[in-house]
Amino acid sequence: MSSPREGHKLLEVRDLRVHFPTEDGVVKAVDGSSFALDRGETLGVVGESGSGKSITFLTVMGLINRSSARISGSVLFEGEEIIDASAARLRDIRGKRIGMIFQDPMTSLHPMHRVGDQIAEVVLTHTGASKKEAARLAVESLAEVGMPSPETRARQYPHEFSGGMRQRAMIAMALVLKPSLLIADEPTTALDVTIQAQILELIDELKEKFNIGVVLVSHSLATIADVSQDVMVMYAGRPAELGARDQVFQDAQHPYTWGLLESVPRPDVRVERLIPIDGQPPSLITLPPGCAFSPRCRHVRPECTAAVPELRDRGSGHLDACIIEPDEKTRLREERLAALEAGA
């Protein structure tokens, strides 16, 4: 396996755009997304349905059908540009150097194949290992993700597994070849709350153990809060805010992030009630002019609709795409929190 050259991020995405031409117009699912990730880091990606978070990472994996989408920008994986890589090249990367797990472990495993065989298939596809060796690695990988009696489990079918166990099996499949990047697309959304914490803990453990980069996609800030080093908040196909976890949680700069934070209960802020964000996510075909969040924003001003706001660094790598000046935002944020605590 090629080791990343000095100075290269594990994954660096620049100005990624994924547009789907349809009969009704062009759906701008991802419209200028930039971020980076290193080994040993977890990037939490948060956004509503349709914010482009899943499409972004399906594109990184090369799982978007290029005949139905217009893809532009840059995806550097371990220093290698893969946005225009051949199908064969991408197949070589998928499963071997990037593992991916999905939202619903109930439907993500093949119902007609034994779990062990499904994991071993990754090994057989990417290495010259014998069937016996592949089966051994599959059992080993199941043991690695905390599967009790992995030999027996490997011979079973997915329907004999609980939801949490299936997601563990998916993780075992994604990590069997020790890839450098794990993309987890809403890995806990379909699971019981108690199991959610276990799965997140497991992903965090494995990240430390194998020194891999993890992308944790979720629609909930609460899910990613504990395990992410960096957080990206996406809105309408673009990053609204991007920074270290504490920057985003303690010193949020984008009104959309404020809305997200106010709509989930937090132990450190006593509030009388949770505040939903007004309105619906915009249509990705006819985005509002300027800032896509402006129609739902409580602090909207005329300048907001003039031009699409660029991501700007507020210092120390904390970026946001809101044109309001930081001092004024601090004031607005304090007002909102005061209003919340007063039970407005």
Binding site: L90, G95, S108, L109, H110, H113, V122, M173
Partner: peptide, 29 residues
């Protein structure tokens, strides 16, 4: 369009393997 076929692609399988090993059985059952 099943999720487990997306998983098969994510594993890096060749199109032939995805069809023969993952799609055909559930389609023919």
């Amino acid at each position: 369009s099943e999720d487990y076929i997306r998983t098969a692609w994510a594993k890096g399988l060749s199109p032939r393997k995805v069809v023969m090993h993952h799609e055909l059985r559930p389609a023919l059952a």
